[in-house]
Simulated scan of single mutants.
Amino acid sequence: MASIREVAKAAGVSVGSISRYLNGQQLKAANMQKIKRAIDDLGYQENIIAKGLKNNQSFAVGLLMNNLASRLSMDIVSSIEAVMEQAGYSILLSGFQGSSTLAANKVDYLLSHAVDGLILFEADQNWPGMARLADVQVPVISLNSPNGLANVDSILVDDRGSVRRLVQHLIAQGHRRIGVLAAPQTDYTAHERLTGVREAVRSHPHVEATVYYGDYSRPSGFEGAQKLIDDHVDALFVCNFNMALGALEYCNRAGIRIDQDLAFSHFDYLDEMSSLISNRLVIQQPAKEIGKMCAERLLSRINHQSENVGATFVFDNLIVGLGDDPHAETQPTIVTP
């Protein structure tokens, strides 16, 4: 394998210039082009372990997820990994399946591996052991759960506002009996979505929202749709992608025509049902933008280039069917600490 001195000789620059280039510093454009060409031609590979020891970095970040099987989670992870890999970082991925005890243990595990930063997806700051994140020596970012601890940035999505807007539209269309397939109210996201429904109907005394609590699964969506439709709702809103699939399956089996017999709206992270139903109302979270911003924010904090440590960043959802462009890129609102 080529050495850094051989790269410098081939590029016609000093070893110091090669070192600065590898550390991301800006050089003259012509020199950067020559260095890149020499690296490619010689097949030079930087010794990340030696570099990490020198800079007291491991070039790895910890990513702790609630549900590793979630479609939203995987879309976000893919976006995070793309940015991190380009920056020369690897990801240590682990899950905790809603267990606060397991989450605390996994934080210990990731920190014991000397990660340069932590990303926590849907971990509550009030869980036992989480308060110490304010004092750890690496930057921390919390996704989909607000965190007011020092040293922790929060990246959220305005699910409450999006759901409120969608349900208000259903009411404006004349729907008076709205069925809601909700997730268990044990986490921030589920609570925000159901709160959005309740805020929308609060000022409409002639509108009734009937709630069925599922468990995020497709079978619970099937059962919930059956019960709500038997209760004669004229619109159905589903707070979760998998439950939406189950609800659609029931409608298909029962011969219920979407948008004719029943208004149907739901969350759809990957837009996989776009070819199945026309004129739908669909809330789409900007998963790729969330992951990209999370990775870039963590990298900037690792490199001590960030301001407003402890800030909260809030993305808006897109609502397909209400005029939002499903391909539009969204930028978050920044709430400083």
Results as ranks from 00 to 15, higher is better:
265 S>L: 07
122 E>K: 12
3 S>Y: 02
96 F>Q: 01
14 S>G: 15
313 F>R: 07
179 G>Q: 03
278 S>N: 01
268 D>P: 14
248 L>R: 04
32 M>L: 09
332 P>T: 10
282 V>D: 03
53 L>E: 05
328 A>P: 12
103 A>Y: 02
276 L>V: 09
18 I>P: 07
321 G>N: 00
62 G>C: 10
37 R>S: 15
255 G>Q: 07
317 N>G: 09
15 V>I: 10
189 T>L: 15
125 Q>W: 04
240 N>E: 11
224 G>F: 00
223 E>L: 11
85 E>C: 14
117 G>N: 09
31 N>H: 10
51 K>A: 13
132 R>V: 08
14 S>F: 03
237 F>A: 06
281 L>R: 02
57 Q>N: 14
74 M>N: 15
32 M>G: 11
71 R>S: 01
205 P>A: 14
294 C>P: 07
62 G>K: 07
78 S>Q: 14
245 L>Y: 00
168 Q>I: 09
103 A>C: 12
57 Q>C: 14
261 D>N: 15
168 Q>K: 15
200 A>F: 00
97 Q>E: 12
238 V>I: 13
290 I>H: 04
260 Q>I: 08
332 P>Q: 07
291 G>D: 01
144 N>I: 12
299 L>T: 01
59 F>A: 04
169 H>D: 13
255 G>A: 13
202 R>K: 14
336 T>I: 14
86 Q>I: 13
211 V>K: 03
167 V>P: 03
139 P>S: 11
145 S>K: 05
16 G>E: 03
268 D>F: 13
225 A>I: 08
226 Q>E: 13
84 M>W: 12
2 A>V: 08
253 R>G: 08
165 R>I: 06
14 S>M: 08
311 A>E: 08
130 M>Q: 12
17 S>V: 01
95 G>H: 02
250 Y>I: 05
85 E>T: 15
32 M>S: 15
237 F>Q: 04
334 I>K: 12
23 N>G: 07
298 L>M: 02
228 L>P: 01
117 G>S: 12
46 E>M: 02
197 V>S: 06
87 A>W: 06
178 I>D: 01
29 A>L: 12
65 M>L: 15
210 T>P: 02
20 R>L: 15
111 L>T: 04
322 L>T: 00
186 T>A: 07
237 F>T: 01
141 I>M: 10
332 P>R: 03
80 I>F: 06
123 A>K: 06
59 F>M: 12
264 F>P: 04
94 S>V: 12
284 Q>P: 04
